[in-house]
Measured scan of single mutants.
Amino acid sequence: KEFRPGDKVVLPPYGVGVVAGIAQRSVSGVSRAYYQVDFPGSRSKAYVPVEAPHSVGLRKAL
């Protein structure tokens, strides 16, 4: 896996977040693995496909 729990990442347009782990989510009846990204200071979460994280701009924070 490219990202691990605890990694600081950037996800446009949300900003800097932390990978909380990998979650299985069902979309249109198909279960897939997603990185769960939490954003400190907020209750917001984002789910990014493990198979294509760069397709939505997910990258490691510098």
Rank of each mutant, 00 (worst) to 15 (best):
Arg32Gln: 11
Gly29Cys: 04
Pro5Cys: 12
Val30Asn: 06
Val48Leu: 03
Arg4Asp: 03
Arg32His: 08
Ala33Tyr: 14
Pro12Asn: 05
Val10Asn: 05
Arg32Tyr: 07
Ile22Pro: 00
Val30Lys: 09
Gly29Leu: 03
Pro49Thr: 04
Pro13Thr: 07
Lys1Cys: 15
Val48Ser: 00
Val37Gly: 00
Ser42Ala: 09
Val56Trp: 10
Lys1Gln: 14
Leu58Pro: 03
Val56His: 14
Glu51Tyr: 06
Gln24Ala: 07
Phe3Gly: 00
Ser26Arg: 14
Val18Asp: 01
Asp7Met: 06
Val27Glu: 09
Ser42Phe: 12
His54Leu: 08
Leu11Glu: 02
Lys1Pro: 15
Ala61His: 12
Phe39Pro: 00
Leu62Tyr: 13
Gly17Phe: 03
Ala46Met: 11
Gly21Leu: 08
Val9Met: 03
Arg43Ser: 14
Lys1Asn: 13
Arg25Phe: 14
Pro49Ser: 08
Val19Ser: 03
Lys60Glu: 09
Ser31Arg: 10
Tyr35Trp: 05
Ser44Trp: 15
Pro49Trp: 08
Val37Trp: 01
Leu58Ile: 10
Ser26Pro: 08
Val19Gly: 00
Gln36Trp: 06
Glu2Cys: 13
Asp7Ser: 05
Val56Ser: 13
Ser55Gly: 08
Val19His: 00
Val50Ala: 03
Gly57Gln: 07
Ser31Gly: 05
Ser26Phe: 13
Asp7Cys: 09
Gly29Gln: 03
Val18Trp: 12
Val56Thr: 08
Lys60Cys: 12
Gly41Glu: 11
Gly57Lys: 04
Gly29Asn: 04
Gly17Tyr: 02
Gly41Pro: 13
Ser31Val: 14
Asp38Ala: 12
Ser26His: 08
Phe3Asp: 01
Ala61Gln: 08
Gln24Trp: 14
Gly21Ala: 11
Val10Ala: 04
Arg43Lys: 13
Phe39Gly: 00
Gly57Glu: 04
Val19Arg: 00
Arg32Thr: 07
Pro40Gln: 08
Gly29Ala: 02
Glu2Val: 12
Leu62Val: 14
Leu58Trp: 03
Leu58His: 03
Val9Lys: 01
Ala46Asn: 03
Val16Cys: 15
Arg43Cys: 15
Pro40Ile: 08
Gly6Val: 01
Ser28Glu: 12
His54Ile: 05
Pro40Phe: 12
Val16Arg: 08
Gly6Cys: 07
Arg4Gly: 06
Ser42Cys: 11
Ser31Met: 14
Ala46Arg: 11
Val37His: 00
Ser28Thr: 05
Gly21Phe: 06
Ser55Ala: 09
Ser31Leu: 14
Ser28Lys: 13
Ala52Leu: 07
Lys45Val: 15
Ala20Asn: 07
Gly57Val: 05
Phe39Ile: 03
Gly57Phe: 04
Ser31Asn: 11
Val18Leu: 06
Ala52Gln: 07
Glu2Ser: 11
Tyr47Asn: 02
Tyr35Gly: 01
Gln24His: 13
Gly15Tyr: 03
Gly29Ser: 03
Arg32Leu: 07
Ser26Thr: 15
Glu51Met: 07
Tyr47Glu: 03
Pro53Asp: 05
Val18Lys: 04
Pro49Leu: 11
Ser28Ile: 04
Phe3Gln: 01
Val9Tyr: 08
Val50Glu: 02
Gly57Ile: 05
Arg25Gln: 06
Ser42Gln: 09
Val30Gln: 09
Pro53Trp: 15
Leu62Met: 11
Tyr35Cys: 02
Arg43Leu: 12
Gly29Ile: 02
Phe39Thr: 01
Gly41Asn: 12
Val16Leu: 15
Ala61Met: 12
Arg25Ile: 14
Ser31Cys: 13
Val37Phe: 02
Ser44His: 15
Lys8Phe: 12
Gln36Ser: 05
Val18Met: 06
Leu62Gly: 13
Tyr34Cys: 06
Gly41Trp: 10
Gln24Asn: 12
Pro13Arg: 08
Ser31Ile: 14
His54Asp: 12
Pro5Met: 10
Ala61Asn: 06
Glu2Thr: 11
His54Ser: 09
Val10Leu: 07
Ala33Gly: 06
Ser31Gln: 11
Asp7Phe: 02
Val19Ala: 00
Gly21Asn: 07
Tyr34Phe: 10
Val16Gly: 04
Leu11Trp: 06
Ala23His: 12
Ile22Leu: 05
Pro5Asp: 04
Ala33Glu: 13
Arg4Met: 14
Pro49Val: 04
Ser55Met: 11
Ala46His: 10
Ala46Val: 14
Tyr35Leu: 05
Leu58Lys: 03
Leu11Ala: 02
Tyr35Glu: 04
Gln24Pro: 03
Val56Gln: 07
Val30Tyr: 08
Gly17Pro: 00
Gln36Asn: 03
Lys60His: 15
Arg4Glu: 08
Ser31Trp: 14
Val18Ala: 02
Gly6Thr: 04
Val37Leu: 05
Val50Asn: 00
Ala23Val: 15
Val48Glu: 00
Val16Met: 11
Ala46Thr: 06
Val56Phe: 12
Asp38Met: 12
Lys1Asp: 13
Gln24Arg: 11
Leu11Pro: 08
Arg43Asp: 13
Pro5Ala: 11
Arg43Gly: 13
Asp7Gln: 05
Pro12Thr: 04
Val9Asp: 00
Tyr14Gln: 03
Arg32Cys: 08
Ser31Thr: 13
Lys1Tyr: 15
Leu62Gln: 12
Lys45Asp: 03
Asp7Ile: 03
Ala33Asp: 12
Lys60Met: 12
Leu58Glu: 08
Glu2Tyr: 12
Arg25Pro: 02
Leu58Gln: 02
Arg59Ile: 10
Glu51Leu: 07
Tyr34His: 04
Gly21Val: 05
Val27His: 10
Tyr47Cys: 04
Arg59Glu: 07
Ala52His: 10
Val18Ser: 06
Tyr35Asp: 00
Tyr35Phe: 07
Ala52Val: 05
Gly29Arg: 05
Ala46Pro: 02
Val50Ser: 01
Ala23Phe: 14
Asp38Lys: 12
Ser55Ile: 11
Lys60Ala: 12
Val50Pro: 00
Gly17Asp: 01
Ser42Val: 08
Pro40Leu: 10
Gln24Asp: 07
Pro12Ile: 06
Phe3Asn: 01
Lys8Thr: 07
Asp7Gly: 02
Ser26Ala: 09
Ser42Asn: 10
Tyr34Ser: 00
Val16Pro: 07
Lys60Leu: 15
His54Asn: 10
Pro13Val: 05
Glu51Val: 05
Gly41Ser: 10
Val10Tyr: 15
Ala20Gly: 06
Arg43Pro: 14
Pro13Asn: 09
Gly21Met: 09
Val27Asp: 07
Gly29Phe: 03
Glu51Ala: 07
Ser44Glu: 13
Ala33Ile: 08
Val9Trp: 02
Val27Cys: 12
Leu62His: 12
Asp38Glu: 14
Ala23Asn: 05
Glu2His: 09
Pro12Leu: 08
Leu62Trp: 11
Arg32Gly: 14
Gly15Asn: 02
Tyr14Lys: 02
Arg43Asn: 15
Ser31Lys: 11
